[in-house]
Computed example of a mutant assay.
Amino acid sequence: MALYGMTDEDLEQMYQEVILDAARDPHGKTDLGVSETESDGSTTLAVAHEYCVPAQSHQFNPTCGDEVTVHVEVSDGTDGNPPRIQRLVWDGQGCSISQASLSVMVDLIEHKTVDEAMKVAQDFHTLMDSRGKGMPEDFDDEALGDAVVFQGVSRYPMRIKCALLGWEGMKASVAQALSALENKPAAVLQTKGR
């Protein structure tokens, strides 16, 4: 595959540089804290945006030891708009691929509606399933933004898990937040923050 007159080797080197840069200066990485512990031992997650429901998921890759906790805050829809990921942050450790993938994921997902975010996550999974072939020719490469650099990673099955770790955490966190929204009484959602 030659892109813009570049050889496969040139592209591979560029991809590696993008991944290493994203791993060195990861977007969305923060120290995740708990706002308070309840008397029953449960914890209340900190929330930076009122009208949002927080949730988080811890993911661990036993193959290589990468681990991450992904925290999301999903808008509750009281403004009449579909649920949106207002905040997406994470804390964890791992190889440069997992850390870079998390950084790129934050850039692509934060502030998107849940439906848009799940579409991007599905596209990223499709890229990882391509085994280095990339996306179909009719695919809009801009939908994945910098995540297309992980096409080279998709050639290595053991590394695919590293690249997908944070994405799985994001999806699990969003599912928890949506479940909490569904189980919340409508009156609480309407008066929240007022």
Rank of each mutant, 00 (worst) to 15 (best):
K112Y: 10
V47P: 01
T43R: 09
E67R: 03
C52Q: 02
D107E: 15
L32H: 04
V106C: 14
S103W: 06
V68P: 01
E110Q: 15
D76Q: 03
H27C: 14
E38G: 07
V104H: 12
D66K: 00
L45V: 02
A100R: 01
S42M: 06
L102Y: 01
V53R: 00
H27A: 15
H111Q: 15
I85R: 07
V34Y: 12
Q93E: 14
L20R: 12
K112D: 11
S101K: 06
D91N: 14
P83C: 06
S96W: 03
C64T: 04
S35L: 14
Q59W: 03
S96Q: 11
A46R: 08
D79F: 09
L108N: 13
L88C: 12
V68E: 01
S75L: 01
Q99D: 08
H111R: 15
K29W: 08
G65N: 05
V89K: 05
T43E: 09
L88Q: 08
E73W: 03
S39M: 10
D91V: 07
L108P: 08
L108V: 07
C52W: 00
E110V: 13
D91A: 14
V74H: 02
M105V: 10
S35M: 12
S35G: 13
S35F: 13
D25E: 15
Q99V: 14
Q86M: 14
V47A: 13
V74F: 03
T78S: 15
G33E: 13
K112G: 06
Q93K: 09
S103N: 10
H58Y: 11
A48L: 10
D66T: 03
L32A: 08
D66E: 11
W90M: 08
E36K: 13
T63H: 12
S39R: 10
E67H: 09
G80R: 11
A100E: 02
T30V: 13
L20G: 04
H111L: 13
E38V: 07
H49W: 12
L32R: 03
R24D: 15
A48K: 11
D76T: 00
T69E: 05
Q93T: 12
W90Q: 05
H49S: 08
L108H: 10
S98H: 02
T78L: 02
V34P: 05
E110T: 12
E36G: 06
R87A: 11
P54Y: 01
N61T: 00
C64Q: 04
S42W: 01
V53G: 00
K29A: 14
W90T: 08
Q59G: 08
D40P: 10
N81G: 11
